[in-house]
């Protein structure tokens, strides 16, 4: 698949290029604001949704080497709309306008790319939320164990044996896995 020329917006987010990020706001924020205001939201909601969506895109670019094969505008709009729809569900509301109306203008590839990104970022968010439910000791052990440092060095720094560290790390990870599976993601 050929990378779309709008990949420059993705690069701008990665580099925190204020000029091009400003262009993203000028060009695309009004559309999102209008959609959210028409669907029971406020300006604050629109700002949050827009910001969170751009951070999701940044994360995918940084950790998943996101390559844009479609125009940026529908991609961003779909991510924002999906996010807002989820927020409305959390609040116990249903949307006023049908999101399916918006999708007809864009190809399935745009929809699939936006859906994939949203799905992966939702999962990552749940992983990190559940990680924070662990006790402090478990969090510290997992942070250190996943830091890339040698496990023997980490055990020494924590004042425990290598065998104990391995056992404790597996226990903490097992607890975290059970938390995540309980979320039925």
């Amino acid at each position: 698949m050929v990378t779309h020329s709008d990949q420059r917006y993705i690069e701008a987010l990665l580099l925190n290029d204020k000029q091009i990020v400003g262009e993203i706001y000028r060009r695309f924020a009004p559309g999102i604001k209008s959609h959210i205001l028409k669907n029971r939201g406020t300006e604050d909601d629109a700002a949050d949704i827009f910001q969170e969506s751009l951070i999701d895109i940044y994360n995918q670019a940084k950790y998943k080497a996101l390559k844009l094969t479609c125009p940026f505008e529908p991609f961003l709009l779909l991510i924002c709309k999906r996010k807002w729809l989820n927020e409305l569900k959390k609040r116990g509301h249903s949307p006023v306008t049908k999101s399916a109306d918006d999708l007809s203008d864009w190809g399935e590839d745009v929809f699939a790319a936006a859906e994939r990104l949203s799905h992966e970022e939702d999962r990552a968010r749940i992983f990190l939320q559940q990680f924070e439910r662990l006790g402090e000791k478990c969090r510290e052990i997992l942070r250190l164990s996943l830091s890339g440092d040698r496990q023997e060095k980490i055990a020494e720094a924590l004042g425990v044996t290598y065998g104990y560290l391995r056992k404790k790390k597996s226990e903490c990870m097992a607890t975290l896995l059970s938390y995540i599976q309980a979320q039925k993601i």
């Binding site: 994360n59 950790y63 999962r123 990552a124 992983f127 990190l128 990680f131 997992l142 996943l146 890339g148 990870m173 975290l176 896995l177 995540i180």
Partner: peptide, 8 residues
């Protein structure tokens, strides 16, 4: 999960 935590 492990990859996500290592990255984030």
């Amino acid at each position: 999960l492990k990859t996500t935590l290592q990255q984030r």
